[in-house]
Design a protein around this nucleic acid. Sequence first.
DNA 1: TCCTCCCGCCAAGCA
DNA 2: TGCTTGGCGGGAGGA
Length: 819
Amino acid sequence: LKTPLKQAATSQLVLTERQPDCQPLTTPPKPKETPPADPWTPTSNLKMLISAASPEIRSREQRRQLSDNSSEVLQTKHCLQEHLLGDEYEKSQPSRKEKSLGLLCHKFLARYPDYPSPSQKSYICLDEVTEELHVERRRIYDIVNVLESLHMVSRLARNRYVWHGRHNLPQTLQALKKVGEENKYIQQIQMIKRREYEHEFDPDSERNEEMASSFGSSEQSEMSFVELPGVEFRAASVNGRKYKSLRVMSQKFVMLFLVSTPQIVSLEVAAKILIGEDQLEDLDKSKFKTKIRRLYDIANVLSSLKLIKKVHVTEERGRKPAFKWTGPEVLPNTQDAKLEATSTTCSPPISESITSKDQCPKALFPSKGKQNFTQHSSLIKLVKSIENDRRKIQSAPNSPVKISASTYQSLSVFPNTVGQFPAITQHQLEGQSKTAEEIQMKCALSSPEAVPKPEPSQQPALSQPLGVCPASHSSVPPVILPHPQSGVSYAIYLHPSQAHTVTTYSPGFMLQPLPCANVTGIKSNNSKVLNKITTEEGDTQRGLDEPTKSLAAEERPETKSETSSQRCLKRSQALQENNLIKRRKSDEESLDTSLTFFPSGYLIPLTHCTHGNKAECSTKEKAGVCALQHTAYSSPITGVIPMPASELKTVNIPAFHITPLNIMLSPNSIAAAPVLSNSCLNSSSTSSAPNPSSSALNFMLQHIGLIPAGVQVPANPVLQHVPVSSQSENISSGSTNVQEGKVIGFTFYSPINESNFLFSLQPSAPKEPQEPQAVTENFFRTPGGPNTEPSLSANPDGTQRTSQGTLYIPQRKLEVSED
DNA sequence: TCCTCCCGCCAAGCA
DNA sequence: TGCTTGGCGGGAGGA
């Protein structure tokens, strides 16, 4: 049995090949689409005008013509088959690969610009597309549905879609990530993997039922389509079928990537999750196969969009197909993004009545551009969290603002500034998009690092391991503070978005970008990660009953916990892209209008540790010194961070524990912080840069509790002496003295590699008299003792944190980059 | 052999 | 009623 020959007589190829007389080697007759010229009658003229005016009419005419031809074509094909040997005929047909959905999608995408001008809407006429691409309409639907799920197109009417391009992609991905987090996909993934793991040891047990019941109990039976306001969604059918729609599946699939770390999802897991959501009883093989098929369809389109890439994961049970997210890194929503994201659902929470489910389609697809929210539980949570965020900001001027990597990176990865700063030209935007990979590389320089996740119970309300503003984004040059004594410049800044956004996301770690010279080692690490994805993700399942309404509870460290080796790989790639990044600086300057910097932290050079893991590092720390000759930095957070020794310089710094950073600044303080001019920023590449004003610095220092009120710090604070408050904690010189202390955020800017580091310093409180400290030490003292830290995130579980990833800076021996 | 996914049937629902 | 849309699964092609 052979696949029946394609009946689609629409193929121009076939048309041109037709030989009505079935005579081999005869000149084919003139194709019918160039008919003998009609007499130029008014009627024919009118026909032509109508046809030209309406593509639909035109295509309908063409279809009619084609259908007239179809029988003829069929006949032709049969003739062709008869005359050609089987092999020859097969060869004459386009190969299976040439007809792949991925290739078709490429062709489809090539027809439209990535970033169409908003003023000039591109419309997609399905008839035209099917005709020009010589494909069946059915295939176009597959593509369009996936594109629709990403809001790259939207349906306008029958046969008609609007092309949005990638304009909405950042928002869509953010929204999807948010919904994915709310749906606890990461837990489902972990659950599935655990089941698989258990199944290996107990293959006879009936795990499917268990798994099904797990899904059923976790509110995951909802299938939703995530919409964006302004992107009108008019589904062709508002029936039950849409619950299984390719669009929804596509969104779910993308969500899985966005919440996973590493961002690799195997088809098997994805299918199981999709089935699990769908119908619990459908965990049979045929459904599974069907889901896999659909996932391949979706994956093909996503691959064409360069959002994912096919990979294989090798597990104990063999090699599994999987896909890796290669799209832009999506960080948790900023408040703005959250406001924009609307999630609609077609399945109400279990407690809701069926009536609401029936009404859902109406709520889902309003006739006009919508801003309304449906009564979906996750959506309600989302709205509430937004409201909470707002309330926290507005009602408590001194309450902390979380500085999150998400905030930072979402701005950096995506041209979110588009919406905020319309002055940015389209050209710039396109430039950004075209250098998306570059941007990603640059982002890697500032991406937060994974760190072992603290248990939720260990996280105090105010010291949740917040997403840390990566101290640098390549497009965000830091404020440079020259340090005359060391000759090293330091930078402090806070992204302005932090002043008005609150993230609910909490990766619980921070970033320590450094140049990565040892690419090989990193790559090998990375490959290990790829090969052990399931074990990498581990059994770090969070409690299912974790409240999601509160700000703190929404923070999900694990969603950010990309493995250190992966990030390091990115870093190494980033290094390779360094030239590109530098070249982009001029572009970044053009964005300066939207990027204002606020001093927010203090600068501290990264300790120089051995190439290796935390244990190695701490061993060295205990010796008090990290060997200078090593060419790689190590941190428990980042893993191996190679750095040439030539770039190092030793300075005196007291003992500090560096832990995942939480910086919490009040919006007021941020607002009051000096805004450096662009010229200042741009010129501040080295120690010649001007300092921020002393008063502003003092204001900020006092405000965040680094220095007591009344104490003044010189404008160049890093190595300046600061009068010590009588209440100040002493700083321990003991390297192993891990005690509760304050968590202070610091940014370290390396002028050499333009990387920045954010650390949270946890000064140890000594029990013994303190040995003489360098002047710098006092600067880092935390005033007021452990109970008086109003705006800094507390770290009552300092010991835990330390055990999970504190980087200890050995006393008096720290290396920093030098010019 | 198994992964990949093309292909088209056919049903739902729209105009 | 014809057409659009899209779920679905058989089975072919390719690795």
